[in-house]
Amino acid sequence: MAAPPFSVLAMLRFILTRVSLIIPTFIGITLLAFFLIRLVPGDPIETLAGERGIDPARHEQLRKEYGFDKPIIVQYGIYLARVLQGDLGKSMITQEPVLNEFSSLFPATIELALCAIIFALVLGLPAGIIAAIRRNSIFDHGVMGISLAGYSMPIFWWGLILILLFSVQFDLTPVSGRIDVLYYIEPITGFLLIDTLLSDEPEAFWSAVNHLILPTIVLGTVPLAVIARMTRSAMLEVLGEDYIRTAKAKGLSRFRIVALHALRNALIPVVTVIGLQIGVLFTGAILTETIFSWPGVGKWLIDAIFRRDYPVLQGGALLLGVVVMSVNLLVDLAYGLINPRIRHTR
């Protein structure tokens, strides 16, 4: 008997196992974020007071108010208890709930990350495929050389080079921000590329695009390099498989063999690699947002470190962790969808 092509039960069981793994990871993140920020010298109260300093008695009083006088373990316990009730606290600087700040800034990060991954896919997949079918050609060597360089490129340095070249030297692209200050765009989706088109100032769209170009390239470079290399090696392996010989023996066109029979199988490891890149992508986003003053959660977290804004840092790290884990879960599900062998054994 042929098994049904798609087993809902197996899928459910898979999701449950994965979700149960999230809990320890979740606790790990709270521990790391909580204790690491406290290793940094200085506390939020000093930072709040700024250059003028603060009267020691008042300092002590504020420390009490925030509970910083309690033993650190107790502080962690209180924090964890609040988190479990869904309370991530308020920013010590703006007094805004952390969750609100996160959700208003997150679309900017997502927009950037999505553009970067699309950029990486649109260039990386074809480059890897062509390099594989023209193995050892100049194109192949070129792609492999460039992607090795791209993979080892320090993001900060790469961003500054691009700014110097395109913004300073040729004045082609803006240096910072998401959109020209001329425009005020009412957030609807939070994605400026969409919101500008919905607004009554459609030319703002081009401003948003222009602002996205350099950050997208900077953030997309490492995934692009990884995807190109992975696609090439997966394609090379798949093209040597018996079923490719069968496809040729059927008289299929070269294009159909490569684009359907080979690519479908080569994509399986590529999707896995993309999944693994999601975490890397968010790390990269933090740096990229800082370089380009991109108003997303990455820059927000970096600012929080400088301000010793404990609740923002703790809550932000936790929320980002949840996002990365959820995306990884989605990628794993997608993996099952494109790989029938996995789908049935789960």
Partner: peptide
């Protein structure tokens, strides 16, 4: 023209049937 012949007028089967079929398609 060759592809019009191959798989139509002359066909071939192989030693390893399981790896000779594409695992990703029904």
């Amino acid at each position: 023209d060759r592809r019009k012949l191959t798989g139509k007028d002359v066909a071939m089967i192989f030693q390893e049937p399981t790896t000779s079929l594409n695992p990703s398609f029904t």
